[in-house]
């Protein structure tokens, strides 16, 4: 059973590579890193920016940040299981913190980051195909640095980023591949069976049989798969 799976896995890999879908974790990390940098440079007053990609159990699968403060603040969020990014991710709504010292929403996280220069923050969820796949965030050292305009800006970033990042979610890849792979293998199998019928019927080589199928498809202006399907379906039952 295990042996049987091997060629299919190899083929999946080959087709995934061809379709440009099988991107490595390395590329995801690079993408979230560049995205973090772009956010930091685009949002005025930002001390640091970050991007987190989460799986359905709120575990981080990929993370990018511009500064170690972001890294520490994020680490504490995921360790404590609370914080603005987790809220943004879970609620699928953006989160605005105007002054962390008076914001009661995440008491443990607030205490944990009190030594870090963080007073303002905005986090927006990354939503692709109706699913929340993570969050982007910016932090600032003074209160009231960010406002509703910042939230809008972050949402503008989040929308295309989520779409692009969803394509490099490794867990999605096998699903995407299997549809194309199945269709390709089904068609190829059909053509090969049609070739086999012609080889048997006319005592010809596989090459000659394929040539004949091409000729038939051209004559009838239909696809090779259609010609093959007709041949396979129409093979007489009493054929020896």
């Amino acid at each position: 059973m295990t042996k049987k799976q091997l060629p299919l896995d190899e083929l999946s890999g080959a087709i995934g590579r061809i379709l440009g879908l099988l991107l490595t974790e390395e590329k995801v990390d690079q993408a979230v890193q560049s995205l973090s940098q772009a956010i930091k440079e685009s949002v005025p007053g930002t001390l640091g920016a970050g991007v987190s990609i989460l799986d359905s159990q709120a575990r981080r699968t990929s993370t990018g940040f511009t500064d170690s403060i972001v890294e520490q603040a994020d680490f504490l969020q995921y360790e404590l299981g609370q914080g603005p990014c987790l809220t943004a991710w879970a609620s699928e709504e953006p989160v605005l913190i105007e002054d962390l010292s008076t914001d009661p929403r995440w008491p443990e996280w607030r205490t944990a980051v009190s030594s870090l220069p963080i007073k303002s923050a905005v986090s927006a969820p990354l939503i692709a195909n109706g699913h929340s796949i993570g969050a982007i965030k910016v932090y600032a050292p003074e209160p009231s640095v960010f406002d509703a305009g910042t939230v809008t800006l972050m949402e503008l970033f989040a929308s295309p980023a989520a779409t692009l990042l969803s394509h490099i979610q490794s867990s999605e890849t096998p699903k995407r591949i299997s549809a194309g792979l199945q269709a390709a293998l089904y068609s190829r199998d059909l053509v090969n069976r049609a070739c086999g019928i012609l080889m048997e019927r006319h005592k010809i080589t596989q090459e000659r049989a394929l040539q004949q199928l091409i000729g038939n498809a051209r004559d009838q202006s239909i696809t090779l798969q259609e010609v093959s399907a007709e041949l396979v379906a129409g093979i007489p039952a009493d054929h020896n």
């Binding site: 061809i18 194309g180 390709a184 068609s187 190829r188 053509v191 090969n192 394929l210």
Partner: peptide, 17 residues
């Protein structure tokens, strides 16, 4: 080329991408 090859593979082509 990738698209062409996949179609070609689907109809029995035996040369690699």
């Amino acid at each position: 080329t990738g698209t062409l090859w996949l179609q070609y593979f689907s109809i029995g082509g035996s040369v690699g991408e």
